[in-house]
Design a protein around this nucleic acid. Sequence first.
DNA 1: GTATGTGCATAATACGTATGACGTACGGGA
DNA 2: TCCCGTACGTCATACGTATTATGCACATAC
Lengths: 338, 338
Amino acid sequence: MAAFPLIERSAYQSATSIDVARCAGVSQSTVSLVLSGKAQGRVSEATQERVRECARELCYLPNVAAQTLRLGTSRAVALLVPDVTNPFFSRVLRGAQRAAQAAGYTVALVDTGRGRWEEQSFQALRAGPVDGYLLFQVTPPDELARDERVVLIETEAPNRPSVRFDIDAGATAAFEHLVELGHRRIGHLAAAWDAPTFHAREAARRRVLGDAGIDPGEQPRVTTPIGIEDAHAAAGELLATEPTAVFCDDDFIAAGLYLAARDQGVRIPGELSVVGFDDMDFARVLEPALTTVALDGERLGETAFDLLEARLAGRKPRKRVVLPAELLVRDSTAAPRR
Amino acid sequence: MAAFPLIERSAYQSATSIDVARCAGVSQSTVSLVLSGKAQGRVSEATQERVRECARELCYLPNVAAQTLRLGTSRAVALLVPDVTNPFFSRVLRGAQRAAQAAGYTVALVDTGRGRWEEQSFQALRAGPVDGYLLFQVTPPDELARDERVVLIETEAPNRPSVRFDIDAGATAAFEHLVELGHRRIGHLAAAWDAPTFHAREAARRRVLGDAGIDPGEQPRVTTPIGIEDAHAAAGELLATEPTAVFCDDDFIAAGLYLAARDQGVRIPGELSVVGFDDMDFARVLEPALTTVALDGERLGETAFDLLEARLAGRKPRKRVVLPAELLVRDSTAAPRR
DNA sequence: GTATGTGCATAATACGTATGACGTACGGGA
DNA sequence: TCCCGTACGTCATACGTATTATGCACATAC
């Protein structure tokens, strides 16, 4: 017998409720009733036990595709992200995942490849396998823009449920911190990424500097892709303009700046103050420990899922949630020398 | 009309092939035939165009649950990981994701919560929504151990397809590097995690040190959870034994060691050489830049998916793949002082 | 005029589940 | 004897798709 691959193959094809029914000598309906716990008073206790026993023996597990088709729901949600390798996003995922698990949902992950999805990855998901969407820094295609099953993360659109950080407060605190230390020449090492979260940082910069009587248009500003090596190169360029402080859109960008400063023998914070954003794990290990704006990514993911789940359950929750962003002053910022 | 929510609701429920058929004045079979491209010579060109036009107009997308049920395949695979927040894993995910996308597959992500899944998360997946499994540092439950649809990543089991790094070569190179520099008191800051990848590091340590005439049992060794703050504490303890070099199971652990060394005024590499593992992004930004063993996580994920895909397609590929692990010597290692 | 194609499209079915509408047997009350 | 209630299950159907077998004209060949 062992020679017949068919024996082995039976392991692939899970038993169906019909197999269980045959085994227990009842109908398929009865099996379904019993195993879904809706057999109260309709099936005798003895029969129920027999069915459960057979199900156990045959390792029966309901076919999810069939369930989804029948019930019109898959208890799964999709999380769309522009780039899975961004470590900040893992926190969001973890939060969403945990909340989803608690609610009996599965999370399907899709990397949209920084906007290159243009319907593509999205098409793959629509109409079936998932009940809803969490869009992380992804602007929904028109089709989805009015869909009730979508929650926006770190993005907003008119009349859509969304979760985001109070980027404005965080960035404002960061720039005010630098101004209060006495800096007058404050650079901006900005992410070359067209997303609301970065627009908010830039807006805060213009406002705070303007209010302090510093012309924001006069301050050095260089954009760079998010990534240490890219930022390293861009930072070299920025340092040539001799700012006394630099606000970085991201901790990775700040790390690149550290490298450039090291190259040029510029001491932090003595000759250059640096502020990052996100509070990644490594921020406090940098030498000196990086002053940065802390964001609770897990809570972001968790909140987003809860919002979506409420929608799916027919409740109408608060439309927009704003989570705090807090400046963490460490050792990379100080008063300018002169 | 705008007052009727039913109008809006139509957006949720995607059009079915029957709707398209009605619109085009043909049968559902014809629609299916046309849209799946199997209508060659069976349906007139005019009708085909009409069907396609209707499908476009109604934004028709095939219901994936129905397709899965009918075809017995979902073109989706599950990636199971012990902890989504581990940044190393994001690389694996990205690699798997990219390969999957190219092959027309979707990746569903499941966080098993470090082994706490005990069938649980797994049950949720079996029998339906996915065609196969990628198990990253996760030991399969008995049920799955013989399943052909499983590929093991960074784990191995008898007669199972798997992908892993040549951890032994990497760790060996690292310890030999330290020995060659002249170190005789070499600590091990080890991950408190029962996984093959860490056993391999330990085995290499014992072998290399033994071969060099250094008793591995005499060398200081402390275990710690993976995470900078945990490692920081554990490293304090390790430094009390005054090693001249420390091998860390992970770059995050190495980062914790940097923190502890800074606390105690121990200079790297002058008084202490440090080697990490993984080559995380931040490794070369540390001061001094961290000597570490580089692993190509993306390639790991990619290879794993390809292996699984080959299985699913009925091909029988190489059972075990081993990817290189290469020592990257930077500035955190030097000869001991005396 | 009957067989033989051929070009075009449809009917019928199966995938595996959940569920509302029915059956059946039995015992008790009138 | 007839009717009804209850306890225990089953039947039939629908979800939306892919596919096999079948049908129907109409033209061609003999």
